[in-house]
Amino acid sequence: MTTLVLASVLRQSAPSLHQKEYDGFRGSLLEFLNTVSAEGGPSFRGRIFDGDRLRRYLNVFVDGTDVRYLSGLATPITPTSRVDLIPAVAGG
C-alpha cells in the first residue's frame, strides 16, 4: 500500500486523506498528488500546488527523503511508498 501522511494544517481541508492507503499505485509523485488532489478538492490542491509547482512552504518526503534530493515531482511512487506532506516552516 502507498500511504499518505498529512500534517494537521493540511488535514483541515481533507481529513479523510490522512493516513489513507492506496492499493497498487505505481507512477510519479506528480501523478500520485494529482490523484490525491482530485479526492481532496480544489481547496486541498491549492495548499499543495502553486500553479504546476509544489508550494514553496510545503515539504514532501518519499520514504523519509525530501523529494528535492530525489527527482522532485518525477520521483517514482511504488505500492510500498510512504508520502509525507509537512509544512516547511519549522526548526531552527
Binding site: A7, V9, Q12, R47, R55, R56, Y57, L58, P87, A88, V89, A90
Partner: peptide, 22 residues
C-alpha cells in the same frame, strides 16, 4: 508573511491558507 492571511493568537505552526510563516 507571504499571503497576509490573519488568524487568532492560537497554536499554529504555519499559515492555514498557504503554509507560509506566521
Amino acid at each position: 508573511v507571504e499571503c497576509g492571511h490573519e488568524t487568532r493568537l492560537e497554536v499554529h505552526q504555519s499559515c492555514p491558507a498557504c503554509l507560509g510563516p506566521l
